[in-house]
């Protein structure tokens, strides 16, 4: 038999992708450095279609879980330390670093990573940490904004989010038009796309806990980004992962920080309400 057209091939891949044996998330507790107990499972926020929310940590092998539990061994911490250096580095025409205004990040940035994205009056759209960094760079430092995943964007975002390690994710959807962006994000979440005709929900809501080939499907929570992925051996930003997932459905993928993906960030962050910020999480 020959595959005479792509449609046949992709239909077969579609069948092959049918999820197989079920394996529930592990019943373990994530304690970082034997002192900081993390909330990695929590009762879902009202209106969530799943009753109990699990961090992706529960779906990984014992070795990968152990790596996140040890902040020394966690290679994502290399990025966090790089972010700390950037925090103190003067850039731009105003002769300022992040620390010039915000001083000690352990104080000034505590909780920030748990409550973003936030409504931004000026641009009339939700602002994530990356966007906040760029507006600080342009408006206060007189520096060039970081391009997506370039310069210090990932390490600085990881450093800022790491200051909220262990704090529960909670968004304020009452600010500005956050609710309508949440709605847009929800639409994106359930929209089937690509040649494989998959939505986010196809894997992460309807089949979490099962295997897609050898991969244990998580609920797709975003509380650990930027996350250290063993596959790439580096920190991976949330919008990179969004694009990767959409690419894997064989769809054209939207730009990072586009309206579509900002809506999705608002919505998926909300789905993980109550989970601890894990940045930098370690995943497969």
């Amino acid at each position: 038999m020959h595959f005479t057209n792509n449609k046949t091939l992709f239909t077969l891949i579609g069948i092959a992708l049918c999820v197989t044996a079920s394996a529930t998330p592990v019943d373990e507790v994530l304690v970082i450095d034997e002192e900081l107990e993390m909330t990695t499972r929590v009762q879902a926020v009202e209106g969530h279609p799943i009753s109990e929310i699990y961090s992706g940590w529960h779906y990984r092998t014992p070795e990968t879980r152990a790596l996140e539990a040890d902040s020394f061994a966690n290679p994502g911490m290399l990025g966090v330390e790089q972010g700390e250096e950037i925090w103190h580095t003067v850039e731009g025409s105003e002769g300022k670093s992040c620390a010039s205004c915000h001083d000690d990040a352990a104080v000034s940035m505590k909780g920030v990573g748990a409550n973003y994205p936030k409504w931004d009056e000026k641009t009339q759209r939700p602002k994530n940490i990356e966007a906040q960094i760029n507006s600080c760079r342009v408006e206060n430092m007189g520096a060039e904004p970081y391009k997506f995943d370039k310069g210090g964007q990932k390490p600085l975002t990881a450093y800022i989010k790491n200051q909220s390690l262990g704090m529960p994710v909670e968004l304020d959807l009452s600010e500005g038009e956050m609710q309508s962006w949440w709605e847009k994000g929800k639409e994106t979440y359930y929209l089937r796309t690509g040649q494989l005709n998959l939505s986010c929900a196809s894997c992460h809501e309807q089949n979490h806990g099962k295997h897609i080939r050898a991969d244990h499907l998580s609920q797709g929570n975003v509380n650990g980004f930027p996350t250290y992925r063993l596959k790439q051996n580096k920190l991976i930003s949330l919008h990179n992962r969004f694009r990767g997932c959409i690419r894997d459905t064989r769809a054209e993928f939207p730009d990072a920080f586009s309206d579509v993906l900002m809506g999705l960030e608002v919505y998926t962050t909300w789905r993980g309400t109550g989970l601890s910020v894990e940045t930098p999480a370690v995943r497969q």
Partner: peptide
């Protein structure tokens, strides 16, 4: 060594 490695890029 683990019986099963989740990702061959990094096996403890």
């Amino acid at each position: 060594a683990p019986e099963i490695a989740e990702n061959g890029n990094s096996v403890p």
